[in-house]
Design a protein around this nucleic acid. Structure first.
Lengths: 212, 212
DNA sequence: TTAATTCTGTAACGAACGATACAGATAGGT
DNA sequence: ACCTATCTGTATCGTTCGTTACAGAATTAA
């Protein structure tokens, strides 16, 4: 064991509590006073452990990814592209509306800093979101090779479409939408799962648009 | 004319410049120094005209709605529900990616304060977004009465679905998505315009889900 | 001209911000 | 027991925040 006085708090617990504050108030709206109070520590302890407010934030983001990894793994392990989409969207809808735990509604990767005085924060968050899009894209590319996605499907477009809807769902959740409403949005999206639609629109785009 | 020294700046121009700052940096990330510099005035002028930072922000929101009213009117005037959806989503995609003017990419109603230390700001923004959802909902209810939307369609769900996707598109735009990518997302959504899908899924939900 | 009114620029206010200096407390290594 | 290393709490740092006091400039009304 390393010499010196041992740390008097659990790092992960502290990060979870800080996460709630960033989630609810955003990066800039979360003051050091708010954070230290929620984490149950004083600022010198915070700075010794995480270096700075931005350092704490990055640690929170890592912790978040770690906590969400199980979900993404389950989604990516689904047997086919449509199931991946379904698990993803329904899971996001469920997660975004779930306030049973410590988490506010919505998604940390959106709420904590869509815009900031310092562009570094939104950029970092966009990178984390893009990571999930990349995972979906690669999963769909595999699905295409394995044949459960048609040869003219566009994995990149499908992944972008899904994360776009997922982000929209999170925004709705942050604005107070109910779990039922979010589930319905996911269901509507999946009902129009665009693989067939894209094929169709390429064959006869005008006709498709005039059908009601 | 009212006595006293006349105002030395154009209110609307000042609001437009302030809008850009709020849009890019968010409500809390936009300091008074940033705002007065962009607006080309000193703080006493700002406070005389708008009362406070929050007052300025609310004036900016009104100005934003005013500038976007033409778009929503055009959307709502479309002849049928599908056209409304198409004009709305394609318009949002175009608008969110358009940086030819002063506007940053994305949407002010999201970027300026999805989360804040003071919950009043996110609430106010959510109210403005909900207003557009309401307009779409009422338009779809009319479409249902007029018969160009099937009798089992849900206007509220359709409106919620559309604004959810629109918000997602704005998030993607803020993260740097290209106009082409956003247009494609809009196209994919419209290709799966869920009125048919909802009808279908109610008749045979299991079957629909197994088709790839 | 004078009085009344409103806006402008300078300069500064108290409060809150993120970040730290420092001394005391608590551990391991020898 | 002693030195070194790390963490904790108090108390405070300089900066920036939103906001305003004040005096001078610019206008109308009489």
């Amino acid at each position: 064991m390393r010499p010196g006085r041992p740390r008097g708090f659990c790092t992960d617990t502290a990060l979870d509590r800080a996460m709630t504050v960033f989630w609810r108030q955003g990066y800039e709206g979360a003051s050091l006073a708010d954070l230290t109070k929620a984490m149950g520590i004083n600022s010198p302890s915070l700075y010794a452990a995480f270096g700075s407010k931005e350092g704490l934030f990055r640690a929170v983001l890592e912790r978040y990814d770690q906590r969400r990894k199980g979900f993404m793994d389950k989604v990516l392990a689904a047997p086919d592209a449509k199931s991946v989409a379904q698990l993803f969207l329904e899971g996001v809808a469920e997660f975004a509306a779930d306030t049973s735990g410590r988490n506010p509604p919505g998604c940390l990767l959106l709420q904590s800093g869509l815009s900031c005085g310092d562009q570094v924060i939104p950029d970092e968050l966009a990178r984390h979101r893009a990571e999930k899009e990349r995972a979906l894209r690669e999963r769909f590319a595999r699905a295409k090779k394995e044949g459960d996605l048609s040869s003219n499907a566009d994995p990149a477009a499908l992944a972008r479409y899904l994360v776009t809807m997922a982000n929209g769902i999170c925004v709705q959740a942050a604005a107070g939408a109910s779990a039922g409403e979010l589930r319905e949005i996911a269901r509507m999206t999946l009902a129009g799962w665009p693989v067939d639609g894209v094929k169709e629109i390429r064959k006869s785009p005008r006709k498709r648009q005039l059908v009601h």
